[in-house]
Design a protein around this nucleic acid. Structure first.
Lengths: 337, 337
DNA sequence: CTGTTAGCGCCTTCAC
DNA sequence: GTGAAGGCGCTAACAG
């Protein structure tokens, strides 16, 4: 596992290492012929500039950190694919870390990345998101940072968001248009902007259609299948099931469906369900789940581009928020016949 | 974004940089008191050893590459979580790359990792897996390498496998025990050892129960939902549907169910289905999918440990194959009432 | 136990 | 257009 160094190449060519270096860095101060010759010999010897040494001199790691709350839900892997598409292309490496919806792990991940001198970080908050202060400290240091999807409004950084409010409103309206009046929103933790927006969309759809709505119709829970199950179970126990659910994501929606079916309720005949994010399995479950389609991959691409802009700019970059739009995918779970 | 260096800490302490270095490297040749003092001042100054410089001197990157064919299917993310558990603990960083089931991308990924001097690579092959020669070249160079799940028998390297043969046999037997005689195996690409083993398990279960079996009962396809759909559609078109399917993984099983239901067949009443891997959604679909439970996370942990052994050993490590076992999770899709 | 010195592999002035 | 030399931040002998 010995690696060839610039020195060996220089010796083989009987020239100085600077010449070899110049050839590899596309510098103008080198004769095209020698450049050619160097590259040829180097290739034959199997030489690559050692990226670590390069990073040392350039004081740049060419590494970018990505921190997501989890990646069992396919949403995050898809975003990461978008991020990689852009960053690998530009010669960056992507270090992926997952926080397991845990604040401590999140902070440890961020610290690890910082310690490793990553050139920037792309982050989606855990649902607890108690690390606002730590993030503020990164921002104050002018550390390149982009948040996506799960953010917090108190932070002034570049963000890539989905138009949660609008599509939550549309999704709720869709349920209302099915003739349903008694709806419940299975909501996410309210520290997250995303949860607030989706909740507000749910409320405003009611207002728009002159339907009553109050906090009893909004149940805050987590993002997992189990959270959906638990929420519905409690409603069943209290005998307070609504006519339809608008769920903060597909996982809770799937949990809701599972709990309802288990207790003999029919979806959508008895109770209609609307999810959010449209993960690939949405179409596989029974009944196929209606959901809001989110452009996951694009979200990653945009986040990567915003980060690159910060990394590669000499001056301070003004934070920018990009809001992406989606569409409604109506399948069976929300359609009253 | 300026970083504090060892020199500055040394100056602040009015000592030499070696002393600071020693304090941070837990060397014995340092007075406990000075060690303490150094660490304290360093912490106050916010100093961390620059990992890049450290890597340069140690001629080690402390980076490990993980290459998977895809990570939309939750199996791979789970394995990666296991890998990270072990490696992050040991101070390694994990670079994750995905090949999108594409050989060219796979080779590019491997090259990128090699160029970046990762200390070792953990890999699961794409289904085409035409990069055997390239891998052999890595092995010849004695590059630390571990294959998991999707391997190829011609390579002599450390591997972490699942006992595919045994569990395929058990899974098939389970179907046979439901009174089914006409079974079809939706198989994976046969370059992969995994595909061959599962296929052989399917065949031998027939032999064991004195049931006829021939190649017409084995249909080679991919690993995706679409592959399952396509396969079943063709059987429907040819009017050659069996009584049950044993599928190479959950995705194809889900595809099969989808296609069957769409065409008015009832699962398991008309046709029983058995999957493989037991992804979290298996229990969510209708009917809940019977599957073979694979210890995904553990697979990652073991792979990481095998790799560490290679990386941290001075001498050549004899390749080792670890075979993990699983269990059968019988849900509704395979049970004849 | 501590300080000095020589690299690790590369890039980048600065002479020539 | 090319070579020599210094330095990036750190570790690892080698002295003392």
């Amino acid at each position: 596992m010995k690696h060839i160094t610039i020195k060996e190449v220089a010796e083989a060519l009987n020239c100085s290492i600077s010449t070899v270096s110049r050839a590899f860095n596309n510098k103008s101060e080198i004769h095209p012929d020698t450049r050619e010759r160097v590259l040829q010999v180097a290739a034959k010897m199997g030489y690559h500039p050692n990226p670590i040494a390069r990073k040392l001199t350039q004081q740049r790691s060419y590494n970018v950190g990505v921190v997501v709350p989890e990646f069992l839900n396919p949403f995050f892997p898809e975003v990461i694919m978008g991020i990689q598409d852009v960053l690998l292309e530009k010669g960056y490496q992507v270090l992926i870390m997952q926080s397991n919806e845990n604040d401590e792990t999140e902070q440890k991940n961020l610290k690890t990345l910082e310690d490793n001198f990553v050139d920037g970080i792309i982050l989606s908050l855990t649902q607890e998101s108690k690390n606002i202060n730590y993030l503020q400290h990164l921002i104050n240091k002018n550390y390149p940072l982009v948040l996506f999807n799960r953010t917090n409004e108190s932070l002034t950084v570049s963000k890539v968001l989905f138009d949660d409010y609008k599509w939550a409103l549309f999704a709720t309206e869709h349920l209302i248009q099915q003739g349903l009046k008694e709806l419940v929103h299975i909501a996410g933790k309210s520290h997250l902007t995303l949860s607030k927006k989706r909740k507000q969309g749910f409320i405003d759809a009611h207002r728009k259609h002159k339907l009553p709505v109050d906090s009893s119709k909004i149940i805050e829970t987590g993002f997992l299948v189990e959270d959906g199950i638990r929420t519905v179970m409690e409603l069943i126990d209290n005998d307070t099931l609504p006519e339809g659910f608008f769920c903060v994501n597909d996982a809770t929606a799937m949990g809701a469906i599972k709990a309802l079916k288990k207790n003999g309720y029919k979806v959508p005949q008895d109770i209609a369900i609307m999810g959010f994010t449209d993960t690939p399995v949405s179409s596989m479950i029974e009944p196929p789940l209606s959901s809001v389609v989110q452009p996951s991959r694009q979200m990653g691409e945009v986040a990567a581009e915003l980060l690159l802009r910060q990394i590669e700019s000499k001056s301070i970059v003004i934070p920018e928020t990009v809001v992406l739009s989606g569409s409604l995918k109506v399948r069976e779970s929300s359609v009253k016949l």
